[in-house]
Design a protein around this nucleic acid. Structure first.
Lengths: 204, 204, 204, 204
DNA sequence: TACTAAGCGAGACGGTACGTCGCGTCTTCTT
DNA sequence: AAGAAGACGCGACGTACCGTCTCGCTTAGTA
């Protein structure tokens, strides 16, 4: 719910005057978005009016909470993703495979779609990008810790560019999810193949 | 211009009765799309109505040529990309760096935006995806030839998964273009760093 | 239809480019307004959306023709009033009674309501008032001719203030129709009583 | 203030439990209505929300006192009109001129507008009409007394229809105030001209 | 030369969704 | 209990585009 500013307000411990917002409305709205995304089609065909009707809520109640459709979708994405994945911690390779595979779940099926619909707004509005970042970065940080652990314990080369490597792992996954550039690349085994290729390198 | 079917019609060499289509309209429409994309912001805010007004053309003239906005955008992307890049052919690494760097031109600035806006439609409609594929695949084939050449002449390992490697090269580029996931990764030198990392591998 | 300007355009005999407006839409809209006014309640509770739905027409089709609800109501009033009344021409008194009674028909039942709803707009916007005047003035002119005839043929006093007399005839009728100030004044026979009272002062 | 029922409650002299109503709120609300009517334009554009904000009062405080916007406007009209006019009592004609002229003050400028906005509700709801009657009737009664006095002392004809005469005096005034039907009729001297014309028929 | 068929700019058409405003009711905390 | 504040479900507002459909007009190839 664009939580950063809300938390800031909570820090000040100010009690807002007037009737407080109904928490059940927040839940109903997010749930309605997810239902419509699952049942329906593309995410930009999702209308605020449909969300309001599905949630049994007035349009104004949505606009009171989110400034536009994209911000709402971002929060819906955050809710869709559920808890952070926790790597097992034994083998760096296995942890990476698990993280990449987790981006291609059935549950994540709509995640690619939704992310795609957000992109134009992310490119246009820095504010939008900041919010999205707050949602996505904790997950990226899990992968970052795994890579750093590998560098420290010698499983990965000492001079590894961690950020670039993260891009090499999640970029192809995203591209394959969103654009299906390479139909030849098998779906099953994709995570293992990608992680191994990144680890191994293309040189002979 | 959704060229396949048009070409097929041309193959049959039927002389269409009535007034032939004005070729200048096609050009004016595509140009209007590109101008609006450059001037304006996001690509899903681009309306057919605005394109028609800008091109000095009736809406029906657009709908006579493209079935919907996405198909029009795909042709605009094709026009935006210009001619196929031609690798120098000396070093595989240098060729790849050139290809990747070519995806991050100033001219390509809007390419990420436009592609992003197409994604929902691409995922939903196989027909749409087929058209997009016809535009994008020739460019991907250039990279594919470079990689195959490397495998054959020993610059790359013999058992290389060419398709996966292509994904590892263009996926991160796309992700960085569209989502700017990694602000830490420098813009200058990105192509070299990525290609080197793909070639080298992460293992020690 | 704010007809004055349309007539002006017709004078210039300019052929408007593009698809011409559908005359059936005009009729359907006006009819829908009258049906809703007859069936429904007060006239400011009449919503453009309801009119559009009833007429089987898009909202834009209404807004293309009338700038706001009041202008639409004025044209609806004009349509409701039908043809100009024609006085018999024998006795001035009888003609006036007929004209006044004609303002209190069953068919005119809603006329008072609608007029009332227009008043705020009439007071605010001179343009609105001008249009309304174009509708109402021809009817007032009928009464004016009757009074002038009476002055000329000696049925009425020679120094009669015609405009004031018109106000004395239609003002009480309007007030009684709209505000029912005097419940004691009988409905039947109202026209005769009023005309006689006015004539008692207007007789030579 | 829809005073009848409130007064009845006061008669029972019940001690209401809890905090008593703040009398300043009533005044602030009425004053806010009058300010908004003077500053703004039409009276149906006056929103309860704006009144509450202007008066520095919660919406519920208004709804606790008046059932709807029209009832509030009626009380505002009453407040706008100020104390009852007191006729001098010498000449019936002069008293009537004073009463009619008093309906056309600068202070009454908005009176026509506000009354006009009430009309639809008055026609629809008998309850509303009753309340309005309670406000307007005492003023009409002043004129009624003047006319009766004239009948009794021979200034007016013995068989005069008092109610109809009242309509003939206030109806044209109302019509001229609200609709400005007759621009030819001069503003100055209107009261005298009207009263004289009516009396010419009402004289014995 | 005239006919026929399609292309063309223009813009009206029935719709859907937008984001805003006000309604009258309700819930919270404070006085 | 009243009060200020303001959230709630609702419904209408007037606007913007959608994709389709006439209009009157050009612009060819065919008769």
């Amino acid at each position: 719910m664009t939580t950063v500013s809300v938390d800031d307000a909570a820090d000040q411990e100010r009690k807002a005057p007037g009737r407080p917002r109904d928490a059940r409305a927040d839940a109903a709205i997010i749930e309605a978005v997810l239902e419509l995304l699952s049942a329906g089609q593309s995410a930009d065909a999702l209308s605020i009016e449909a969300v309001a009707a599905r949630a049994g809520v007035g349009k104004a109640t949505i606009y009171r909470r989110w400034p536009n459709k994209e911000a709402l979708l971002i929060d819906a994405v955050a809710a869709m993703k559920g808890p952070l994945p926790v790597p097992a911690g034994e083998s760096v390779r296995d942890d990476l495979v698990m993280l990449i595979a987790g981006m291609r779940n059935k549950r994540m099926e709509h995640y690619g779609k939704v992310t795609a619909c957000l992109v134009p707004e992310l490119l246009k509005s820095p504010e939008m990008h900041r919010i999205y970042y707050g949602v996505i970065e904790p997950r990226r940080d899990v992968m970052r810790q795994v890579l750093r652990r590998g560098v420290e314990n010698g499983e990965l080369r000492a001079d590894l560019d961690v950020e670039l490597t993260m891009l090499m792992l999640s970029g192809p996954t995203l591209a394959q999810n969103m654009l299906r550039w390479s139909p030849h690349v098998a779906d099953e085994g994709f995570a293992e193949a990608l992680v191994d290729a990144v680890l191994r390198g293309a040189a002979p």
